[in-house]
Design a protein around this nucleic acid. Sequence first.
DNA 1: CCAAAAGTGTTTTAGCTACACCCATGA
DNA 2: TCATGGGTGTAGCTAAAACACTTTTGG
Lengths: 240, 240
Amino acid sequence: MAKQKVSPVSVDGAGFLTHVAYDSVVFGFSEGQLKILLMEYHNTGLIALPGGFIRTDEDLDEAVRLGLEDRTGITNIYLEQFHTFGNKSRHKPEILQKILEANGIHAPKEHWMLQRFISVAYYALVDISTVSLQPDALSDSCTWYEINRLPKLILDHATVIEKALKTLRFNLDNKIKDSNLLPEKFTMKDLQKVYEAILGEELRRTSFQRKMLAGRILKRHDKLYSGEAHKAPFIYSFHK
Amino acid sequence: MAKQKVSPVSVDGAGFLTHVAYDSVVFGFSEGQLKILLMEYHNTGLIALPGGFIRTDEDLDEAVRLGLEDRTGITNIYLEQFHTFGNKSRHKPEILQKILEANGIHAPKEHWMLQRFISVAYYALVDISTVSLQPDALSDSCTWYEINRLPKLILDHATVIEKALKTLRFNLDNKIKDSNLLPEKFTMKDLQKVYEAILGEELRRTSFQRKMLAGRILKRHDKLYSGEAHKAPFIYSFHK
DNA sequence: CCAAAAGTGTTTTAGCTACACCCATGA
DNA sequence: TCATGGGTGTAGCTAAAACACTTTTGG
């Protein structure tokens, strides 16, 4: 529930849809590892998913997209809503209070940011190499963390990530071609590494190759001569 | 966006999470037809999905469950959240105004119910035969409609139903055993009829039977002697 | 020529379909 | 014994997995 633009903070939340927030689980892939983007708030040690609020004149999807564009510099991010979290036990005003205090903002109890939120969660699939991270006003870092070395997170953000990953695994075959996890051109081995990182298991090389080729989503280009002493692999891109 | 308890309507929405609502697509099955529960508002001719608001002391899931229990009398409803709709184009205050007016409530422009809502949508699978419908305070009917004979609906409710049905079709094999679409005990033919109504296509009898038996979700009981001149079918129930 | 990694041919397996046939039932 | 509908055996198809083999590459 980090937010990107809090400078003019009104107590009643004018201009924003109160009680509604979004959180985004941004997946990236580099060095053979699946990674997630997390933010750390100034002077608090608190780490959270990047998120924000919805302005009264924005579509929900649009708000999420713009919030992410601000932080990653990427336009055209692959984004998908996967769940809305609305348990009342998520309401921990002392945490948000602490974050605001650490930034010199003394919010009264009735401040809209201290009230209970329903949070709509999205996941994104981005190419880490094209991202230049921009912490927001309340945070001093915005960093990639390996999926299996996550730090302690505020609220139920660990659960949110868990569910995002589950959804991603379930839909991977359908989503991979629209994702931005890999650069435009890649080898079959690159693609297999992405699958293995996401599914958390090793796959048979030959079965994987055949399954992918049967899917008709790959376009084959020239071979890649790496200078190494073995057959050169084909380069692929996703169709259209 | 019907609501179940509006008697004490405060302008600022105290006690409710403003800007958040839920809509529920309740599927039922009878007479070989898939049906959906819809409500008609007093003196307006407006027809909508049953829905409501979330109280500040309720979980989101709990609010939806209780709202449905009020209307159908069923406890233990199978409920699943499938999408959250948040386009700003959904905001049509004149419709809600009309509904309130028709009930003698003259709400000022800044009334919370006339503001923009994010709506969390759920679908439910219930056994029509155990339901006794209860219209809420703003509605004069609460009726089952055949899925392919739906009336014109307010806002984007037709889209919501479309998406609910798509989700249900996609997950049917996984959800059927927890659904309440059929009474506890049923024949293979009954089950096939449910599948056909949901998928909107006819299925081969023998293939269907084998697929279901292979799924290990059915427990076989005695035979059902209907008094008709043919082999008596087995009775089944879902495991656990 | 060798080792490493890529690509492909062949066999096996599993699930589903289609068709056939037999069985139980009450008139 | 007949018509009706339910259950299951068998053969065929297709997609995926498993295994083996060949090819390409630079040292």
